[in-house]
Simulated scan of single mutants.
Amino acid sequence: MPKPMRVGVYIPEDLVGELEAIMREKGIKSFSKIVQEALRLYIAEHSWKLKDRVTGIIGLLYDHEIGHVDEELVDIQHMYLDVVVSYMHIHLDERNCMLAIAVRGSREKVRELVGNLEKTKGVKLIRLMLV
């Protein structure tokens, strides 16, 4: 196992206050553990850009009252059956729905899929979480 490296990090006072409140709530005593977790999350969120194949979830919030958005979202998923593994449809309220689309495959195809989903009228928010 590689030897740990000590680094200095300057954190603005307002962030320190928020961080300390979360640490108290969670019972965490070590700033190092928090920084390590934050770095792991950052690496997980951005390292997919360096890989050819990715796995993860596309989270999507949309207004199902707009046009034929449900049908359009299904049609788009069918265009990407090579990367769409599964999906879950969640009713949030009378107008809003959420999709969780599991993906696995080519990074470029997943990026293209997200781009097409984003362009769909009625889509409010897309969040990509790759691991």
Rank of each mutant, 00 (worst) to 15 (best):
M1P: 13
P2V: 15
P2K: 15
P4E: 06
R6L: 15
V7G: 04
V9C: 09
V9T: 05
I11A: 03
P12M: 01
E13H: 10
E13M: 09
V16F: 08
V16C: 12
V16H: 11
G17N: 12
E18V: 07
E18Y: 07
L19R: 03
E20L: 12
I22G: 07
M23I: 11
R24Q: 11
E25A: 09
G27M: 04
G27K: 12
I28Q: 03
I28V: 14
K29R: 14
F31M: 11
S32M: 11
V35R: 10
V35T: 09
Q36P: 15
A38L: 07
R40P: 08
R40I: 09
L41A: 13
Y42M: 08
Y42L: 15
I43Y: 13
I43F: 12
E45L: 06
E45R: 09
H46V: 03
H46L: 13
S47P: 04
W48E: 04
K49R: 05
K49W: 04
L50K: 06
K51E: 11
D52W: 10
R53I: 12
T55A: 15
G56T: 02
G56L: 10
G56W: 05
G56E: 00
G59I: 02
L60K: 00
L60G: 01
L61E: 03
Y62M: 02
Y62G: 06
D63S: 05
D63Q: 01
H64I: 04
H64K: 10
I66K: 10
I66D: 00
G67M: 02
G67S: 05
H68T: 11
V69E: 05
E72R: 14
E72M: 13
E72P: 04
V74T: 09
V74M: 14
D75S: 12
H78R: 10
H78C: 14
M79F: 14
L81Y: 14
L81R: 07
D82S: 07
V83F: 00
V83P: 04
V84D: 03
V84S: 00
S86W: 05
Y87K: 08
Y87F: 13
H89W: 02
H89Y: 08
I90F: 15
H91F: 08
H91Q: 08
L92Q: 05
E94S: 14
R95E: 12
N96L: 11
C97S: 06
C97Y: 00
A100R: 01
I101K: 00
I101V: 10
V103F: 00
V103G: 00
R104V: 06
S106Q: 03
S106P: 03
R107E: 09
R107W: 05
E108V: 08
K109I: 03
K109M: 07
V110A: 00
E112C: 04
L113D: 00
G115Y: 06
N116I: 06
N116H: 15
L117A: 07
E118S: 01
K119N: 08
K119Y: 02
T120E: 14
T120W: 01
V123M: 06
V123C: 10
V123P: 01
K124V: 11
L125V: 12
L125G: 12
L125Y: 09
I126F: 01
R127Y: 08
R127E: 14
R127G: 07
R127H: 10
L128F: 07
L130I: 15
L130Q: 05
V131C: 08
